[in-house]
Design a protein around this nucleic acid. Structure first.
Lengths: 331, 331
DNA sequence: GGCCGGATTGCAACCGATTGCAGAAGCGCC
DNA sequence: GGCGCTTCTGCAATCGGTTGCAATCCGGCC
């Protein structure tokens, strides 16, 4: 069906090597044959078959894009940025949906069969075992939104979740809240654990502050709604730090349905600063995570690692800061 | 790096063909050699390289998943369903982000280089020229959420947008609204055009009803918000049919910000029935589009077309129906 | 034991490209 | 024209598999 090297070679009256060389960067071809080949290629509509080429070059230009979060609208933006960024570099993302995968082994196999050049994991909830499994399989991996380590054994780009937890707690305490709640994402996620650790650390210095902790099964509106509805069945805290804006917005929805006002009855602070957080009728006070920068940096790091697979693992951290809106009582 | 056929053959003490055959469905291998090969393969951790195999089989099991909508949260669910459905069939989606692509030609080239087995287009806004370009390049294509034709020249799975427009108008009129608005998505999208056609047709029979039409630049919350805010600068209609729930929710947000009540001041009916539409504090009356079924059917159709590329193009239509909630005044 | 036919097996060519190597061209200069 | 050098070019092997074909194996039967 498709035009091959050989047909171009015949039409141009040169060897197959000559054709190949005109299509490979920096190969030695005279202007004359290059012209002949390009003319023939144009006439036939030829373009090299990346997959066949990959057999010898060992580069497929395929990048595994793996995630397990398909409920949080933020991730649509994340996929948008990743796919654009990768395709600008001539790389093509192969999506791997690990929404209900338990076993890293199977995922590794799936991607190995396709000989992806690298894997970027876009998730704050996927267990680190997955990243390690890919690495152990010899595939370059970058974990975006993962847990940065001070002694990284894998490339990680993200934020300091401990600090975010700490910042949230300090902010709530400074506003005069004395019973504060941590409403995290999945308890198994490192992001949740780290935020809780930071949150708890901050409250340790304030003996007059009571802390409640609870967790949502997923990062989704619905999970936030349901968890807050459950909390309202008991004695809720005066203010909550939610592990994600989607949880916050879900929680606010539950509060409003219960006839409670935010921030008059309950304060809420989120994390991410997604588009909706800025809407006038939501107006969520939140901790902004620089998604765009994290993704840009992840792609850069992936490209660099493709160049030098032996590159020393690094952790890249981006700063988060409070975006003050209207869901906490004023200072 | 990776284990190859040859190494397995040597360890198992058989020819390369034998190894190949134990890994290809329905090939003739004796139980004895199969056992030897499988043992060797297990020891070495061998698995066939799909891409190398594709060179002779001409099947990469790669499916192009192309879309241009990365703003509408509904599409996150769509990607979720597509990726899961495809990977259940052993197919792998290569994502192609056409958010700001103008030229079908370039996109075709991108996918051709990777010799995808097929392309599914998930978009209600991508011009039909893209689908045709893929088809003309000899790639099986299924257009999900596309414009069904009564004389289809391309596989399409979707809804009858004309009917939806008609249904929306009839519903608004039946509720007693006499100035009704059509607030569509991008004017260039066939879905918008068809809905408007249906909407206009319904109103033709009601000379006492005035119609306003306007369009949003994209299917996103923000576009809906901005368009409604603009409309509120003039004399708004009594009720609007929005081309998507995200537009509706954006519009409601703008209305609330302006101190107006839905449905007391302005009625809204959406389209899709996304998760948020059911929230108590949104409670959107909408036309439900059976997304899940459309995707399941699209994947089935793709699989069938892969089997028989010469399959006659068909259009598959799914019914839509009103989901009554609280954003229209009662009957 | 010998013959027959179907089930297995290995050889070798091929899928669409790249690339090391050796020979051929091209060039400047004497 | 001949020399030495650099730049091009084609041959042939290779990447990791599949597959048509012919040869071999095997069991059953006379």
């Amino acid at each position: 069906m498709a035009v091959t090297l050989k047909e171009v070679a015949i039409l141009a009256g040169v060897s197959r090597s000559a054709v190949s060389r005109t299509f490979t960067e920096g190969a030695s071809v005279s202007e004359k044959t290059r012209a002949k080949v390009e003319k023939a290629a144009r006439e036939l509509g030829y373009q090299p078959n990346v997959l066949a080429r990959s057999l010898t070059t060992r580069r497929t230009k395929l990048i595994g894009l793996v995630s397990d979060n398909f409920r949080n609208p933020l991730f649509l933006q994340i996929f948008d940025l990743f796919t654009r960024g990768l395709q600008d570099l001539g790389l093509r993302p192969v999506l791997l949906n690990l929404s209900d995968a338990q076993d890293p082994h199977g995922s590794v196999r799936m991607l190995q069969q396709y000989s992806v050049d690298g894997v970027v994991i876009a998730s704050s909830t996927l267990p680190p075992a997955f990243a390690r499994a890919f690495r152990d399989a010899g595939v370059p991996v970058v974990h975006s939104f993962g847990r940065p380590s001070s002694a990284p054994d894998i490339h990680v780009v993200g934020i300091d979740n401990r600090f975010c937890g700490w910042l949230a707690a300090e902010t709530l305490i400074a506003r005069g809240y004395r019973t504060i709640g941590f409403m995290g994402g999945p308890q198994t996620a490192t992001s949740t654990q780290d935020r809780l650790a930071g949150f708890s650390e901050a409250t340790k210095n304030h003996p007059d502050v009571a802390v409640r902790t609870s967790f949502c099964k997923a990062y989704s509106f619905e999970a936030g709604r349901m968890e807050m509805a459950r909390l309202l069945g008991g004695q809720p805290a005066e203010a909550y730090f939610c592990g994600d804006d989607v949880l916050s917005i879900g929680a606010i929805s539950a509060l409003q349905s219960a006839g409670l006002s935010v921030p008059n009855d309950v304060g809420i602070i989120g994390l991410n600063d997604m588009e909706m957080a800025g809407w006038q009728n939501i107006n969520l006070t939140t901790i902004r995570q620089p998604v765009r920068e994290i993704i840009r940096s992840s792609i850069e790091l992936m490209a660099a690692t493709l160049e030098d697979p032996a590159r020393t693992p690094e952790a890249r951290l981006f700063a988060c800061h409070i975006v003050e809106r209207g869901t906490l009582k004023p200072l």
